[in-house]
Structure formats: C-alpha cells, structure tokens
Design a protein around this nucleic acid. Sequence first.
DNA 1: GTGGTTCATATTTTT
DNA 2: TATGAACCAC
Length: 801
Amino acid sequence: MSSFDEMDAFEGASLSQQAMARFSQEKRSYKKGLNPDQEKAVDKVEGPLLILAGAGTGKTRTLMARVAHLIEEHNVKAYEILAVTFTNKAAQEMRVRLEKTPYSVQEPVKWLGTFHSISAKLLRRHSELVDLKPNFTILDTDDQIRLIKQLLKVNNIDEKRWPPRHLAGVIEDWKNRALTPAKVPASDAGAFNDKGIELYAQYQTRLRELNAVDFGDLLLHMVTIFQSHPDVLAQYQHRFRYILVDEYQDTNVAQYLWLHLLSQKHKNICCVGDDDQSIYGWRGADVTNILRFKENFPGAEVVRLEQNYRSTRHILAAASNVIRGNESRLGKELWTDREEGEKVRLIGHWDGEEEARWIGEELDAMQVGTRGVRPMNLDEMAILVRASHQMRAFEDRFLTIGMPYKVIGGPRFYERMEIRDAMAYFRLVVSPEDDLAFERIVNTPKRGLGDKAQQTIQVVARENGVSLVEGARIVVEQGLIKGKGGKALRELIDGLARWNAMTRGPRIEVDDDTVIDDGVSPIRYGAPEHTHIELAQIVLDESGYTAHWQNEKTPEAPGRLENLKELVNQLDNFENLQGFLEHVSLVMDNEKETDGAKVSIMTLHAAKGLEFPAVFLPGWEDGLFPSQRSMDETGIKGLEEERRLAYVGITRAEEVCTISFAANRRVFGQWQNSMPSRFIDELPEEHVEVLTPPGLYGGGQPSAGIETRAAEANVYNSPGWKRLQARQGQYGMSQPRETRNTVIDATAVASFTLGERVFHKKFGYGAVEGIEGDKVEVAFDKAGTKKVVAQYLFPKDDVPF
DNA sequence: GTGGTTCATATTTTT
DNA sequence: TATGAACCAC
C-alpha cells in the first residue's frame, strides 16, 4: 500500500497542504506523550533490551510505539518481527492496539502470538524432524489424563496411590524445564515412585504413535529441532530480526531456550516484564530468567519504567511498602504525579459471610458515592480473591440481594462436556487416527458399546497395528460384535468415513514448492460440496449426538444444545474444520459479552494486567493469603510469590482499594478461625484507614466501645482485634449466629413430621419418611426416595413461589 | 451396561 | 460443604 492510499483513507480525496502537514505529524504521533524512559525504550533498537515495566507504567503503549518506530524509522518489515505473548488475550490485545497505532503498520505483524501458537505453526512445518506428521493433534488435559491412566494400567501402578494427575504434573514440570526423557537428571529419578522417567518415556512414545503432542511438546519439540538442526534454526534466526517478548517474568526454561536460540543471530531481543509481578512460579515460570537477563544476553541494556499512571499516591505507597519485603528483586520504585487520593481502606469482619454482606452494601454505597469517593458504576469495581472457593460467599450473597456480578475465568466454554464431545467428533472426522477422540465418543451417545466391546476393538487394533477406527472397521467386517452394538458401530464407522470424505472436494495437483510461509502441502483439493459449517451440523446430527441431548430431560440439556449451536456458529470465523480445531485447542477462551454493568469477581491471578477504579481484596488471613500450602511447599520462595500476588492485587486499583479479613471462615464445611494476614502488618499505617463494619457484633449501630476503639486503633494489634480473638475462643466456633440459614434450618427441621406432604424445588411433591438432623428423607412422587436438606423443603401448602 | 450410592478429597491456571 | 470418581448392585 502506498502512502498516498493511506492519505486518501485518512483525509478523504483532498490532498491539501494542510492535510499533508497533518499527515506527517500523525505519522510520528506514536511517540507523542511518551515519557523519557519510555522513549529510551523505544529508541534503543539494536541489541538485547530489558524493559522493567512496573504496574501501570504504560508498558503496552511503549511496546506499540517501539513496533511503529522499528517499522517507520528503521525500515523493518512487519514479517521480520516476532512478537510473543503468554496468553491469547494479550496477543489479541496487541493485535488490536497495533491496528490502531496511526500510520505505522500497513501489513499485520504476522508472527505475533503466544509461545504455543507460534510453536505450533513452526512445528507443523518441521514435524517430520521429530517423527510427527504435519497434521498432529494437540491434546487437551482430558486426553492427557486418559492416556496416562492407560499407561499406569499397563505398568500395574495403583492409581489411588499414584494419581495420574500427579504424573501429568511431573511430566509437565520436566517439559517446562526443556527436559526430554533422556535429559531428566538423576536427581529426579525418585519422581513418581522411581518410575517417573520411565513412564515419561513411555508417554512420549505413545504420543508419537498417536501423532499427537501436548502443550509442553509444542515448545519442547521446537527447542529440540532448533538444537539438532542448525539449518532450520538458522532459517528462523535470519527471519526474525527483531524479537519482542511480553511478560518475560513468566517464561519458563523451555521458553527461555526457545528465545535464546532464536535471538542469537541478530541479538535484537526486547523483553518486557516485571519481576515484582511474577506469580506463576508454581507452573514452571522461572524468575531467574528476568533476574539474570544481563548475563544471559551479554551487552543487554535495562530500562526501568517507574512512573505509574494508574493509581493514586496512597495506593501506590501501600503497594510499594508491601513489595519491599521481598529479598530477590531487581528493585524498582514506582512514583506518580497523581493526586494523593483515598487511603487504602482496611476492615475486619466476624466471618466470611459478613465480609460478603459488607462488600455487597459497600458496592451499593459506592454507586451513589460515599466517603468522598465519586459515584462509580458496577463495572468499575472488582473483587479479587486468592482462591476461587472464596467466590462462593460473594455469589451467594449477590444472588440474594440481586447484585449483578460476573465471574471472570470460571469454567470455560471449551471445557464443557458437550463441547469436548463435539470436538472429538470433529477431530475424528479430520484425522481418523485420533484414538483418544475415538475412545471419547464410541459410546457417546450410548450405542451399547461398553467395556467389553471397546476392549475387542482395542485388541483387534493392536493386533493389526492400526488405529482404533481402522480396528473397529475390521471388527465390524468380521462380525466380532453382535446385535445392537455391532449395528451401531457399523453406522458410526460408515458415518466417520462419509464425513471424512466430505471435508474435501476433488483433488487438484498444484505445482508449488515455494510456500514456506503457510506450510501447506502442495496437494490441494477443490471446493467441498458442503461448507465446514454444514458438515459440522451433519456430523452432530447424523451421529445422533444432537438427538442425545434433545432426548435428555435434565434441566441442563437445553443449555447444552444452545452451546452446541454456539459452537457451530463459531465455525463461521474459520476456513475449515482443521483451522477451527487448532484455534480451539490453543485459544480455548470464549468470553461472552456481558450486557449491563456488573461487578467482576476473579482470582488475583486472573486480574493481572487489568485495572479497576475500585478494588476489593477480601480474605487477607494468614493461611488463606498468604496461602499455607504455598509457604509449606516452597518456603520463603512461596511467601515471596504470595507477596507479589498482594502487590499485583493492590496495584490493580486506580482510586479505591479496600482490603478485608474475617476472623472466622468455613473451610470444607468446618469453621476455622484465623489471624489477619502478615501482609496487613506490612501496609504502611500512614496510607491506611481502618474502617469499622456497621454491624460487626451482630448489632445495627456501632455503639459499643469495642467498635469505636477498633476504628481508632491499628487493627492488627488493636484491643478490638484481640478481644475479637478472645471472644472467639470463649464461644467457640460453633457459636450460632443469627443468620438467614440457621433460622430457616431451625424452623424447617422442627416443622416437618413423619408422613407430611412436602414440596422440593427440583424433585416436586413427596411424603416425609424420616428425619435425621437437618436432613429429611422424602419419598417423592416422581423422583423416588431421597435424603434432602430440610432447608430446601417446604410444607405442601406453604410453597413460597 | 447402566445407574445409584459411597468415599475421598479439597490453591493459584494458561497453553 | 460439595464434587468427582470408583465401586457395587441390578
């Protein structure tokens, strides 16, 4: 595209002087408003560069400007840039931001993506170097576990004592450290009952046989290829003149090697990260990557971005003071020229329910404006928790008071059963040798093919050394499975063959060996008769899968059908089924657009990279946050990571940050009491305001002496707090409180008598047959006899809805 | 081969 | 408490 075209696009048809002037100004506008440090990060073009970007210091902006600068001032082609992120969300955001950067990028930066998606792209071209076919499948966690279970069975290992998940974790850890089975050090030989290494080797062999890889393999295979095929490496070293890496503190060893190898020719590697925000150590991220950047990349320059544009001074000061407690850090001091703002607010509650109730009320108050804080919309506020089980209390509370909320990062679309089933069908249609997919769907919907029938297929397939689908075909031909099951299997096999044929039109030979970039084989096919969308629908219908859910009468069935419809709709964005499968296995997120303002609830991990005017940080209790397990397992390292999590949490807040803790909390159904988090001690007093909950001791008005004193004093060593502790010991954990639940329980249990007619929301009407504590045994007219919690039962004539 | 009951178990989560 | 997996009974 010529620059005149752009001008036309920008200024309409007019080419006036004024427009020209405007154009040349716009052209450099990517640098406008950058602070000196940011500008330094943009201008340092050659050689290794580490940008230490603190929270809210305009990191993304700087990166975008850097790309624009490279392309405009240094004549770099978009395809010479490799830009790597961790999450698809980040990649997507970068893509969008690049498009918006004025006059910079005429052609899209093609090599922009996650480590995994870029590796997948590369691996499809060179798969034969690691004994894979280019159409290898990428396994999801489900498949992985199923495969490992099979291995454990073959090796006669007790799944109870040695859970498959554990082995999956061990293998993942090795892969994160770029260790192939042969390279696992002897010091790890004890892993998984001394059999870990051997099982890892077997696992890799099975993957190869299945023409499949797991997520770790995508990187590990590429590192292996780079290390053993200098010609291949040289090709990409040459191509990627400039490498950009986001969230560098989250890289693991394999990713470091991957980057290091690729950058050795031009050495133009620019990594952006913040050691203080490294919170993924538990899944293999290695902070030493960022701490030792200068040694790993000799001649590296380090630029610090320390001016924070996000938070007010009180909030920033609190965050800085907390993170200062960490020993191993590169050291940064964030500052801001923003206003002082509100102090960080701290509040203690009696228990988790009350904490949720208080936050609910506070959300309402803040929508109107309270305590000098401007009125805010619900979507400007977020609740960030340490562990997802904390979310329940909020959901319960918000449901009862009708507070609109959304949970970010919950169970995702792709993880749903029906989606995985449908995907397995698609996978099988695209690659019939996908045994794991076959296993998943042979008997879904029910075809009368149970363990025995499946074993027959397995045996036949193994004897003939073929895939399960092929084995099943032989089984059908030889009539090894009789009756209903045999007939159903024949239908399935015929169907698969038919659908597979539908993926292609007539074959066309193309003379083209120049295509290196898309890695497509020179054999092409004509247009298929059906679009892939139609094909997907055909597969789901003809396999009986749609009917399976239509016949299902459970309350979830309509939703599942809805999801399947959504899945088919999504296909519209892709050219074919293969493309879609790759997308789903790598991208797998599906955030629905929400309508209306809602308060967000999410984990601290999920909140990284986000910001909100008002942030609530509940559950700051020792053992919960910092998490006991973290400290037990990795000691001081774990504690430091928890502290970084606290830092991440506080720095999400722009204007108001509210930290809270509860004295009592129900954990696994048991009441537990706990001390306020040690991180609360690390909050600087002068930047913290201690609030008093209006109903702390069950009353309505804060009138008793305890509350007043708690408000004045420093909560963590206040008499109020100590008294709270004392009370708790005095009354014990079972101290009944006047909560909604206990009231209902009490009346409910008391009011039911044997033989009484009752109603249950889900099971309908029935008669009481027995009472045990808060559980009532009811013979339901339709659903049979069940034990249900009295709370959910109502006398026949007293149904409240 | 299916369904119901019992039993163990319990961060953070992306690709 | 609450969920999932394993096992046992039809």
